[in-house]
């Protein structure tokens, strides 16, 4: 503080010599303001104002550890569809639907996916007993939440395409897994491409 104070005084003095009467006046004003601020600053608060007081009253705090207990999970109601039993799966296993793929950050059906979708559509119209779930997936890049929404769009775009081929929309449901279930975990375009997919799961009838 002292050094700052001295600097200010010396600077103001130079001004006074050069500036004449007006500057002298101003200098007095400066000094006055300074003096006022000084008195204010250096007045120590009286003993009553000081908190906490000299003799500290000892506070006591209980410290506890918070440990999670066993979680009581919410009950999930059964959804209408059930997955096929292993025997049923073996029966449909002869029909293999391979995944269709998407461009980065896109959900439009690419021309190379059409033959597979035609195959799924004809299977669905010939086998009325089966429903299909379309899973939409993304590559690992980008935000989880946005990717979930993107995966949903991929699933829905695939469903819409199948519906346009005449499959009853009630037989197709969609679910997104975003980037949560990658087929491969390398950081390469080949790997990312294989993860950007719609996957078909055949389920039993309601």
């Amino acid at each position: 503080m002292v050094t700052v104070f001295e600097k200010i005084i010396s600077m103001c003095n130079i001004q006074t010599i050069k500036g004449g009467y007006l500057m002298k006046k101003l200098f007095v004003v400066c000094l006055l303001i300074f003096a006022v601020s000084c008195t204010k600053t250096y007045t120590r608060p009286s003993e009553e104002e000081v908190t906490p007081p000299k003799e500290m009253k000892e506070e006591v705090m209980k410290v506890e550890e918070e440990a999670p207990e066993e979680i009581a999970y919410a009950r999930d109601e059964e959804i209408g569809e059930r997955d096929l039993s292993p025997a049923e799966v073996a029966e449909v296993a002869k029909t293999v639907f391979s995944d269709i793929h998407f461009d980065y950050d896109k959900y439009n059906i690419r021309p190379d996916a059409r033959p597979m979708l035609n195959q799924v559509a004809s299977f669905m119209s010939e086998n009325g007993d089966y429903n299909v779930v379309i899973e939409g997936h993304c590559d690992e890049r980008g935000t989880n939440e946005y990717n979930l929404a993107l995966g949903e769009r991929r699933g829905k775009a695939t469903k819409n395409y199948l519906v346009s081929l005449g499959v009853s929309s009630s037989k197709i449901s969609t679910v997104t897994f975003g980037e949560e279930k990658p087929l491969c975990t390398d950081t390469s375009e080949t790997c990312w491409q294989s993860n950007r997919r719609a996957h078909f799961v055949v389920t039993g009838r309601r």
Binding site: P52, K54, E65
Partner: peptide, 15 residues
């Protein structure tokens, strides 16, 4: 040169 806080912390286990 004055104490500005004095507080006792109490836990039943060593946490």
């Amino acid at each position: 040169n004055r104490e500005v806080l004095k507080k006792r912390f109490d836990a039943s286990k060593v946490i």
